[in-house]
Design a protein around this nucleic acid. Structure first.
Lengths: 226, 226
DNA sequence: CGTAAACGTGACGATTTTGACACAATCTCA
DNA sequence: TGAGATTGTGTCAAAATCGTCACGTTTACG
């Protein structure tokens, strides 16, 4: 279950937000001022922070800057709240790197949906070494690959190639980027290396190679076809 | 360079958006109606789509649904545009899964900043594939190893061996377990393979190999000696 | 339809990786 | 101290990996 930190001094707003999020099975915690917000964020490491700009003891911008300077909290998405028609605040917040912005008064429904969109986009990547996508299971620690429970012997380069595509499932990867990231190439215009390795990889994974789709003129994409 | 598809029938809005994005080194392409928007998205696979809801030939909602049904385009972030004060449209769009929402008339600066936030958020999050322990930094995705900021060329087997020890920093790993986990051996009693690879690994990492400690009769241990 | 570009494929040779082996060095225990 | 066990070391050859090349096939466009 996701946890959202609500940094807001007005309790009625805080309760409104909290109520609506909890109704969507999103856990909440409350910080009444800027100092408490920083402390709570650093201690609890929530999945998202809703940050009012007008906080006692330390304003929202300052809180935001501090969170971004701390390695533990710098990647937590932040949605800023401010009073209506403060466009300069919106600009400043977004320039600082806030992930979204909501002006009071806001529709609770809109707030919930925006929170969900943020949570969805920033879902933390599991730190485990095993990645599973449909029929594919790869273990980064042992460089082993299983498809439909069957072990596939991949060379290290083949493994890296497949891993890259699988971790970016759904997103087409252009050839140049693949060559750079798997091979470390600087100049990628002339190489046919990728083609050769792709053929080898497809041969090894057999029928399931239909999950690796060529996008002509661009590159390749992994699709989890059931 | 990122590419943004602007699906908008009003040319002055389209030009305003395009101009401001290009000023931020963000490439743009323009679709004047809903059909063209779908075609262009499927063909060009932009990094983000700005989608007006009032499009000729196929409205924005319909376009959005089609894009989400296509494996190639379903993960492209979408920012919806609509006329002022249409809260129902906002809710519908966000419920459908739009990533952001902007109401006309909008500040060009806000639009740019929101586009940037979306592009940043939807960039593949750096996977937790990098492990750092003292002077050592290993990237599981690329099988690269840096010691004191210096790249060390390791074979895949050497990498696996070092990774195992580093991930279990402080805990002595017995020979049999290492042979089983790195080499997949079932019977480990007679092998000198580990010794050979350990010597090679130590040679490559030079002075810092003092971090790999032999525990006679047991195996090896990684100690983070500063 | 024809053509050029992009990608697939098979084959080859160079390079790298790997494990085994024999000898050397070190450690532990009686 | 001596002996046996364990680990370090250098070398060798087989196997694996890799990238290139040329030809084949497919795709997209005029």
């Amino acid at each position: 279950m996701h946890q959202v930190l609500i940094a807001e001094d007005e309790s009625d707003i805080s309760e409104l937000v909290s109520f609506n999020l909890q109704r969507e099975s999103i856990g909440t915690m409350w910080a009444k001022d800027g100092v408490e917000a920083v402390e709570m964020a650093q201690k609890e490491l929530p999945n998202l922070i809703i940050l009012d700009l007008m906080l006692p003891r330390r304003d929202g911008f300052q809180v935001f800057k501090e969170l971004r300077l701390d390695a533990r909290t710098k990647d937590i998405p932040v949605m800023m709240l401010t009073a209506k028609a403060q466009l300069e605040d919106v600009i400043t917040g977004l320039e600082l790197g806030a992930d979204d912005y909501l002006t009071k008064p806001f529709s609770p429904k809109e707030m919930v949906l925006r929170v969900k969109a943020l949570l969805k986009r920033s879902a933390p990547t599991p730190t485990a070494s095993v990645i599973t996508r449909g029929k594919f299971q790869l273990d980064k620690n042992t460089l082993t690959c299983f498809v439909d429970g069957r072990k596939i012997d991949l060379t290290p380069t083949e493994f890296k190639l497949l891993l890259l595509l699988i971790e970016r499932e759904g997103q087409p990867q252009n050839r140049g980027d693949i060559l750079r990231e798997v091979w470390g190439y600087r100049d990628t215009t002339q190489s046919r290396t990728l083609d050769t390795h792709m053929k080898r990889l497809r041969t090894k994974i057999g029928n399931s190679s239909s999950c690796i789709v060529t996008i002509r003129g661009i590159g390749y994409q992994f699709r989890n076809i059931a």
